[in-house]
């Protein structure tokens, strides 16, 4: 179990309503979000529209608003919401005993477009 999950440290590294980034050498940077409802999510840090860094957007509910052109992206599915169409890969995440874990095989993926 532990082997499949990558420990990326304690939950209190990310304040509620904020996100932080995790660069992956040779792979895609990951954004990890902490919502105001105290949930954690991880997405590839690239907006499906024009690759905006989602980690820098405003988080509300389980949505992040992209900082470049205000697309709303679901933190749960990575889908663009409303009229906009597109999807960014979600990285499975779990929180256990105050630490954040990412599914190793989802972190180590080859670069997307």
């Amino acid at each position: 179990m532990i082997g499949d999950w990558l420990d990326i440290g304690p939950v209190d590294q990310i304040a509620p309503g904020n996100a932080r980034t995790l660069p992956v050498r040779g792979g895609e940077e990951i954004a990890i979000f902490h919502t105001l409802d105290n949930q954690f999510y991880a997405l590839v840090n690239k907006c499906p529209h024009k690759q905006g860094p989602l980690s820098q957007g405003i988080v509300h509910g389980t949505i992040v608003t992209c900082p470049l052109h205000n697309w709303n992206i679901s933190l749960k599915s990575g889908e663009a919401l409303g009229e906009d169409k597109g999807c960014v890969p979600v990285v499975p995440l779990r929180v256990d005993a105050g630490r954040i874990y990412l599914l190793r095989e989802a972190v180590v993926v080859k670069k997307v477009a």
Partner: peptide, 15 residues
């Protein structure tokens, strides 16, 4: 923390 990455992942082997 707004300026720093959490950490960096450096996979030993890349698929």
């Amino acid at each position: 923390e707004l300026h720093q990455h959490l950490a960096e992942v450096r996979p030993l082997e890349f698929v």
